[in-house]
Design a binder for these strands. Structure first.
Lengths: 210, 210
DNA sequence: GTGCATAAGTATACTTAGTGCAATATAGCC
DNA sequence: GGCTATATTGCACTAAGTATACTTATGCAC
């Protein structure tokens, strides 16, 4: 279903991984900004020019590792058109249970190192936010498919949902980065997620003294 | 209160404006990506190096013009600690009434050109999103000052609020960019804002068929 | 006003991300 | 083997941003 395994394809895949691995190894060791594209290319034993054939830019060398999740929320909604928000809530809670990297609640050394790199490198923030923006757009489009929701409501809802998911993930990652184990952080993470989705579903009220 | 008007300060201010004006003129004429820093410096009659003394980077040449509004929501909340969300709502509606640029509902040619430039230049998106991020952070901090709100709630609320405000502003601008006048778009903009803040205050429900 | 410390501005050269293009090598296929 | 498409490469180029050492102008004490 996914590939015709010509030698060509396999080689391309291996080259791509070689570049990516070389890049991350160097970035972990010296920091994103301290490593040049040329150094990555040299370490991966390809020409600089070839590197750009595989990755759109320096940022992509890091961010492609989370690219799969760009439209995850949109996919979840597509599969649960009847009650999107509870579905997203369950999906997120399920992610926490499984310690999925995208929830931020994952302390596997390699994953943690990657997320530390991403979050700890201001240079990468713009790309990261674009990534988020793209996810929001996809979610809005998917929500907009529902005949019960006006396009405007869909866009507003998507904006809110994505912002909450990111805040939750960031907070979780922050604890991992501070050395808390995923297991130890799990209960708080669940409580936070439930609060977040409750606020989404039931509203913020006036935020005044209630 | 703001400046000791030495000749030095005045000259600096004028140089800064000269650079900014030259930059925007060129950007409006040829597009952000089609104009180099060197061209801007030449047009403003300063050296390239001096330009970088005044502006952190090429993006800043454009975005400094909206920098005042970066922490606007935080300021509003600071002034209305008792009921932040209604205050933000009123502030936004007031902005619409006054056709404030930051609401997106402003069709003054210069403002529209600036916003068109910002929104129509993908290169600027990252900086724009960083700007938003910074505003969200400030709002979260300000909300967190309230003893009634947990820090987590403050962060989640800030994320939601900012995302809604941006969506509303973007949608408004979009209509301006399509040639609708601010006056004509006003009623819809108010309705959209009320919907947005209603969703914030009262929640999204399940988003299913209600 | 003169002179000096300080800050603004400049010239120049450098590093690095990213692109265009033409030349070369290699997989897939007959 | 030989042909074709594509992967890869080297080289030259543009442009953003930085380092540094030098020049000019301002503010201020006298």
């Amino acid at each position: 279903m996914e590939e015709q395994t010509g030698l060509r394809e396999r080689k391309k895949q291996r080259t791509r991984e070689a570049i990516s691995n070389a890049a991350l190894e160097l970035f972990f060791e010296h920091g994103f900004d301290q490593v040049s594209i040329s150094q990555v290319a040299a370490a991966a034993e390809v020409s600089r020019r070839t590197l750009f054939a595989y990755f759109r830019g320096k940022d992509d060398l890091v961010l492609h590792r989370i690219a799969d999740h760009e439209h995850e929320s949109a996919r979840v909604v597509r599969a649960h058109r009847d009650a999107p928000l509870p579905a997203l809530r369950e999906h997120f809670l399920d992610g926490l249970r499984r310690h999925e990297p995208i929830t931020g609640l994952c302390d596997l050394p390699q994953v943690l190192a990657l997320y530390r790199l991403i979050m700890g490198t201001p240079t990468l923030l713009p790309s990261l936010l674009r990534f988020r923006e793209s996810g929001e757009l996809a979610l809005a489009a998917e929500l907009g498919e529902s005949p019960d929701l006006s396009p405007l409501t869909a866009r507003l809802a998507a904006a809110q949902i994505v912002s909450v998911q990111w805040r939750l993930s960031m907070d979780n990652h922050h604890r991992m980065a501070n050395g808390v184990s995923a297991t130890d952080a799990y209960p708080d993470a669940v409580a936070a997620a439930e609060l977040g989705f409750d606020l989404l579903m039931n509203g913020l009220g006036t935020l005044g003294k209630s």
